[in-house]
Design a protein around this nucleic acid. Sequence first.
DNA 1: GGACTAACGTAATCACAGC
DNA 2: GCTGTGATTACGTTAGTCC
Length: 175
Amino acid sequence: MAEDNSPYKAVATKCRRSRTKFTEEQLKILINAFNKKPYPGYAAKQRLALEVNTEESRIQIWFQNRRARHRFLKRPEKNLDLRQDRVYPEENIQGMRDRRCRTSYTSSQLQTLMNAFMENPYPGIDSREQLAEDIGVPESRVQIWFQNRRSRLRIQKKREPEEASAQRQNQGQDL
DNA sequence: GGACTAACGTAATCACAGC
DNA sequence: GCTGTGATTACGTTAGTCC
């Protein structure tokens, strides 16, 4: 955390979703499901959400954190290459293929999102929920949209100087 | 205060529609 | 095929809660 413009600092001043407190019964169901299948598909996550009476996005976060903890506990001390975990067993890949249907936004929904993004690229939970209500999509989709938008903007900004210098080189060749 | 863990960030990648 | 973009992942950080 050396840089002042750290996103985490920005987040600290904004409103996070209040922390979910799972009951013992809910945890029993989640752990049981995790032990059977650490990479549930969208349908399985929805079923679990219904069963433990929470949102599907909370189930997704819970599985993400659970897998991270699992990897950490399983990690051999000398093995620092955690990326090898990206090689998934076949049954896990099947779960990953069962994705949520792609959300398609209308131009007016996109306009609303873009306006909000220009005003604040890191909206807190309150703003995200308000936006979600305004455009009629779940808050979790708004969160993903902002993540993707920030990511693509960073990539675009990184590319701009490279493209400009390539253009200058081309112009030099043309002369 | 430290441990645990939900929430949330980035980066990389997959998946698929539209051209 | 390529591009744009929504969805999902690993991994890292922040912060609330409990002891």
